[in-house]
């Protein structure tokens, strides 16, 4: 066996280990666990009766949410990459040193908030998918646990959107400050 073969085999082993580790992290990271809800016998009975139709509604909501996520994602990306970043570059290159740091800081916060929004949406969607996958008539407490999880995750997504809207407003205020600096 030549030295080349040895190197290739060692490399193959290392790459295989890395690929398997990455796959394991991705696969096990995706599995959503929720605490089964504490339900009264009446509530459990209601859930058993109605959960199949609830899952249908939930699926429709999930589909609509996917479209909203794509539209919002595109809108936020357009704002940050086609508007904020070019204006920041232009402000810096023209030497408006009072406004440039403000604009750049808000952009960084916006980018961070956008990342959080994407992650929160993914967690939310995982919870909804888990609630849809489960045989809810057999496991009503688990189904309701996932549903409660989805509600709390959805609230996080909603808070993220409020945060992003606030940063869009903050950036606009900073642009008006830049306008004042330009006029001076």
């Amino acid at each position: 066996m030549t030295l080349g073969h040895c190197i290739i085999r060692n490399m193959f082993k290392k790459i295989s280990i890395v690929v398997l580790a990455v796959l394991a992290v991705f696969i096990f990271g995706q599995i959503s666990y929720a605490k089964p809800a504490d339900l009264s016998p009446e509530k459990e009975s209601i859930i058993k009766q109605t959960c199949v139709s609830a899952q249908t509604v939930l699926q429709r909501i999930q589909h609509n949410d996917a479209a909203t996520r794509v539209n919002r994602g595109q809108g936020y990306e357009t704002i940050v990459s086609r508007l904020m970043v070019p204006l920041n570059t232009r402000t810096t290159s023209n030497g408006y040193n009072d406004s440039a740091p403000l604009l750049i800081d808000t952009t960084k916060n916006f980018q961070q908030a956008l990342e959080n929004f994407k992650e929160d949406y993914e967690s939310y969607d995982n919870s909804v998918s888990a609630a849809l996958r489960i045989k809810c008539q057999d496991k009503p407490a688990d189904f309701y646990g996932y549903l409660e999880d989805a509600r709390s995750e959805r609230q996080k997504v909603s808070n993220g959107i409020t945060n992003l809207a606030g940063l869009i407003g903050e950036y606009r205020v900073n642009v008006l400050k830049l306008n004042n600096e330009v006029q001076q």
Partner: peptide, 15 residues
């Protein structure tokens, strides 16, 4: 939509 939480309420889902 702003991902209002109330959309996943029991009455909205028919539970």
């Amino acid at each position: 939509s702003t991902f209002n939480e109330s959309i996943l309420g029991d009455p909205q889902l028919g539970i």
